[in-house]
Structures are given as structure tokens and as C-alpha cells.
Amino acid sequence: MWIAVSVLNPLIAFLAICIIPIAEVGEHQNSFLSYIGSLTGGSWLATIVSINAVTVLSGAVLTSFVGVNGLIKRMTLDRILPNYFLKENKRGSTYRILILFFLLCCSVLLVTKGKLGPLAAVYALSFLTVMASFALGNILLKLRRSRLPRPEYAKPGAVLIALFAIIVALYGNVKANPQYLVTFLQYFVPSVLLILAMLMRKDIMHFVVNILESVSKGYKRYTVTRQRFLNRSLKKLYEQNFVFFSKGDDISTLNKVMMYLHENEVTNKMKIVTILDKDKQPDPKFLSDFDTLDRAYPEVDMEYITMVGEFTPELVDQLSKEWSIPKNFMFISSSGERFSYRVDELGGVRLIL
């Protein structure tokens, strides 16, 4: 891809300079390549270029639908977005996600009135923001997950240079067209607020329950009904079971896991699973420390389970089906270089420490 872009893009620019005056470039920016084709080869070449452009754009749109569908589904499974989006049709397609994304795309088209300038600017801001998140994520991996094995390593200096270049590009786009930033924020801010509301839903629901309890007695029937609904919703959230696969030798890691659950998840049930080799028993000191940790979190029902065997994707799949616990509610800590599997091979198990 890099070779193709490095060769084709400069050649196309050089070809354009050779064929038409620079002043005419702006006059045909909506169909520039087809215009060059009509000048060099005639209408037949312009038609071929146009068909090729439509095909490429159709592929890009299809790719965006597939990517957004996978992203929102994963975020919903991790309880970052409402479960409303997980509804599937008979063919197993999460059609609500696809319909929502289609409506969002149509709304962007209507807001920008179909003009290429605003559309390109909104796309550029979105794309650069995603690229910046990649750079920030890479930096966080280096700081928080340095032991996590991965096939490619980027040097810190290269990541910082890339992040600086992205920031410069963002500033340039905003400086050139400040009005397009407003359009971008009209979609970005509500999305962030929705995600924050889902992450803080436990506190929000408790707050609403307290508000309803303090409402005047004149609205007692209404408030009691709503209060019962919220309490049932909270109870359903708390009953979700989580699993953490522990090496069974470090109680401080388990304490960090419990702190993570308290801050980021809504549950009061936790299974701690340790996979042992044959004829091996858990460390008695660890069991004693586990009892102490269990007493430190009285609101959480902690269950320690030992199993003989090997930690494999097949075992994860077996336990997920046996316990009816989705794999995205199963956690592991950072694995070392000797770990036989990549995180993505575990089918959605989350890495939290």
C-alpha cells in the first residue's frame, strides 16, 4: 500500500500539472480525474474513471458499515453502549446498528447539503481523531502493558512524531475551516456523552432513585413505579457474573482486579479461576490471603475455583458455555512472552491489568 501510494499519487499530480493549467484544478475538483481522462483519452476514458470511482467508493462504504457494526457490537457487549443494539434478525445480523449508522450518514449528508468541501472536512477531522487515538493507545500500551507480546513494536520517538504531525494536521484543518469543526462536534459530543452516561450508569441510576424517593407524595404512584423499574434494572446489572483467570500466586493482582471492577463494572459476583498442573495444589498462603480479600469486599460474592489442565482458547469457550458467561466478561492480566496464545485468539477475553 505504501509503495502504491508513494508511486501513484505523485505521478497523478505530475500528470495533472502537465495536462492542464493549475488555475483549472479548482474548477473541476468534484470530478478531477474523469476530467483529465476526457482530455487525454476522450469520453470513454472519463466513463471508465467514473465507474472505477463509484466502485471504489462503494467498497469504502461497505467497509465502513462492516467496521462500525463490529465496533458498536463489541462496545455493546462490554456494556459501553445500550443492549438495544444487540437485537439480531433471523440471519444473525445486528440490523439496528446498521440502520443507526445509515441514518447518521444520511444526516451528515443533509447537514452538509451534499457539498464535498464540508463532507471532506468532517471526514478529515474524524479520520485524524482516530489516528490520534491510535498514537495515544500505543503510548498507553508502552506505559501500562509493556510486557504484552505483540508482533510489531513502534519506537517511542516515532509515535511521538506521528502524534505531533496529526495534531498539526488537525490544527490546519480547523484553522482553514473553523465552521466545519462545529459540524464535527455536533456528532462527536453527543457520542461521548452517551458513552460517559453508560460508564456512569450505576451512579446515575442510584441518583435517580434517590431523587424519586424525595419527590412529593402527590406523585407517589408514579415515582414508586419508576423506582421499582430502576431497582430491577440495577439488580439485573449486579447479577452479571464475571470471571478472572488468575495465576494463583499474587494477591495484590486480585486486589487490583477488584478495584477495577468497583470502578468500571456493575456486578457483585466474581469467579476467580486458577488453572493448575496435574498433582499441584494452590499455595496455602494465597488461599489465606484470598479469604482476607473476600472479607475486604463484603458486597461482592467471590468464588475461588481451581481446575487441572492448561489455559487454552478451548477451555475459555467451554467455561463460557458451561457458566453462561460471555467471554467479554472474562478477564486476564498481561501475559508474558512465553504465553502460547495471542489475546485475540481467546475469543473476546479482556485484558485489564
Rank of each mutant, 00 (worst) to 15 (best):
W2N: 11
A4L: 14
V5W: 10
P10V: 00
I12N: 02
I12M: 10
F14T: 00
L15P: 00
I17M: 03
I22S: 04
I22A: 07
A23D: 08
G26Q: 07
G26R: 06
N30G: 00
S31T: 13
L33G: 01
Y35C: 07
G37T: 09
S38M: 08
L39F: 01
G41P: 06
A46Y: 05
T47G: 01
V49D: 05
S50G: 04
V54A: 12
T55F: 15
L62W: 08
S64E: 12
F65R: 05
V66L: 10
V66M: 03
N69F: 07
N69K: 08
M75N: 11
M75S: 15
L77C: 04
D78Q: 15
R79L: 09
L81A: 13
F85Q: 05
K87E: 08
R91H: 11
G92N: 02
R96P: 04
I97Y: 08
I97Q: 05
L100T: 15
L100S: 15
F101N: 10
F102A: 15
C106T: 11
S107C: 11
L109D: 05
L109F: 14
L109H: 02
L110Q: 03
T112I: 07
K115T: 00
A120Q: 11
Y123N: 10
T129A: 14
M131A: 11
L141C: 10
L141K: 07
L141W: 00
L143N: 08
S146I: 08
R147E: 14
R147T: 10
R147M: 11
P149H: 07
A158Y: 12
V159W: 03
A162C: 10
A169T: 02
N173A: 04
Y180P: 01
F184M: 01
Q186H: 07
F188R: 02
P190F: 06
L194K: 05
D203H: 14
I204V: 12
F207S: 14
F207R: 09
V209W: 05
N210M: 09
L212V: 03
G218N: 13
Y219K: 11
K220E: 15
Q227E: 14
F229Y: 11
S233Y: 10
S233P: 00
L234S: 06
K235S: 15
K236A: 15
K236D: 14
E239Y: 08
N241G: 00
V243R: 02
V243F: 06
F244N: 00
S246G: 01
G248H: 08
D249R: 12
D250L: 07
L254H: 02
K256W: 06
E263V: 03
N264K: 15
E265C: 10
M270Q: 05
T274L: 02
I275W: 06
D277Y: 02
Q281A: 08
K285G: 07
L287S: 04
S288G: 01
F290L: 11
R295H: 10
A296D: 13
Y297C: 04
M302G: 01
Y304S: 04
V308S: 09
Q318E: 15
L319D: 04
E322F: 02
E322Y: 05
G336Q: 08
R338M: 09
F339E: 07
Y341P: 00
V343G: 01
E345V: 03
G348H: 04
